[in-house]
């Protein structure tokens, strides 16, 4: 029980997210209308993705500090679940785009794809795609762990400044971009209705914990499979 409290918390929070997210009242703004409820899913996916990538980055540093193979298993599994979250973020984004920007704002596909936040997300997914290709090209597991940890750290350190820079550089369709009401491309608490915040923040925590849960399951499978390697 003392180890599984966060799994129960994740379940409860997600239950709360789904029930309250669909039933509670939301402000109806032009164009957005009821689609704003997608915020509880779409934005949370990106939060979960970034947090999982940060965890993966930390484990890569830990690997290089002690060369403990366990840390490598942690790093690459958190990265892969992060990628899944990113793909889900794109998927929920596509649903949102198809009923707002494309239909009501008449944006072309080209302008949607050049969205700064989409570019940032694409860079992140490409980097982790390259990370897995790099891992696949080694046969020696120690070498694989070491080199891919180096790439993970380097790419992550380059990724974060770019996520801060690019949104400030190009105009955006996302709320909170330069040109819209507020100047801050990151989340601004004035951008969101108080009632929505009460669902949104728990949702972020819930989805992140779910991601971590999936990752730990994968890690446990791999640790069992490599048991001989780790103890033998």
């Amino acid at each position: 029980m003392n180890k599984s409290w966060w799994k129960i918390l994740s379940f409860v929070l997600l239950l709360y997210t789904v029930i309250c997210g669909f039933l509670l009242d939301v402000p109806r703004l032009p164009i957005l209308n009821e689609t704003i409820r997608n915020l509880y899913f779409h934005v949370c996916m990106w939060f979960a993705m970034m947090i999982l990538f940060i965890v993966s980055f930390v484990y890569s540093i830990k690997y290089l500090r002690g060369f403990d193979y366990r840390n490598d298993i942690f790093a690459h599994n958190f990265a892969s679940v992060g990628c899944i979250m990113g793909i889900l973020g794109y998927a929920t984004g596509i649903i949102w785009v198809s009923v707002t920007w494309v239909t009501d704002q008449g944006q072309s596909l080209g302008s949607v794809l050049k969205e700064p936040k989409l570019i940032g997300a694409a860079i992140a997914l490409l980097i982790y795609g390259a990370y897995f290709v790099l891992r696949g090209s080694f046969t020696d597991i120690d070498k694989r762990a070491r080199i891919s940890a180096v790439y993970n750290i380097f790419a992550f350190a380059m990724l974060f400044p770019s996520i801060w820079i690019i949104p400030r550089l190009v105009g955006s369709l996302h709320p909170g971009a330069p040109g819209s009401d507020s100047g801050n491309p990151a989340l601004d608490k004035n951008d969101m209705d108080a009632g929505m915040r009460a669902v949104f923040y728990p949702a972020v925590i819930g989805w992140t914990l779910l991601g971590a849960w999936i990752a730990t399951l994968r890690i446990r499978i791999e640790l069992l499979r490599d048991k001989k390697l780790l103890h033998g």
């Binding site: 570019i119 860079i123 490409l126 980097i127 795609g129 390259a130 290709v133 790099l134 790439y151 380097f154 790419a155 380059m158 990724l159 400044p161 770019s162 820079i165 690019i166």
Partner: peptide
């Protein structure tokens, strides 16, 4: 190319 392009993109 695979490793470098996403990193240099920004």
């Amino acid at each position: 190319a695979i490793l470098g392009f996403p990193v240099i993109l920004p």
